[in-house]
Amino acid sequence: MSIVSWCHWLQNTPFATGIRQSDLFFPLIEGSHIIALSLSVGLIVVFDLRLLRVAFRGQPASLIMEQFVPFSLPGFVIMFATGVLLFISQAEKVYLNPFFRFKLAFLVLAGINASVYQVKYYPKMREWDKSGLVPWGAKLSGALSLLVWAAVIALGRTMAYEL
């Protein structure tokens, strides 16, 4: 079975049809997907701004990470769960939508960028915090994160326009 025909089957299951045709659940799921941006991307942006020394210059980056970033986790859980439900409800059209594919690619990029930070810069944060400077690679990671998440938002908005 090809992926398209699997998507076709998926969106025609009673569960998917139920979401798609619900005047209550579809707007609620879609609205939650957008408004949870505040919890997920919103908190990541604040940490990116610290790396770029735009906000909280007087506080160590490790402190800002420890105090704010854990709050983004429930946000990303909501994002992922509602995203999966939205996909199921319109699987075929979404799968064929070029903006969706770019959005997935940028999500992977965001993941790679965050992983590189975790491996390369996170373990030594307390050391470079003392000097008050942010290594250029960590700064680059913060800037990339801002750009990639902005692109994810733009691609998400545009793909919905095409559905």
Binding site: I34, S38, L43, V45, I153, R157
Partner: peptide, 13 residues
Amino acid sequence: LFGLTLVLGTVVI
């Protein structure tokens, strides 16, 4: 929406 992310994100904090 990016503006919304900044407003609601900081308001949550």
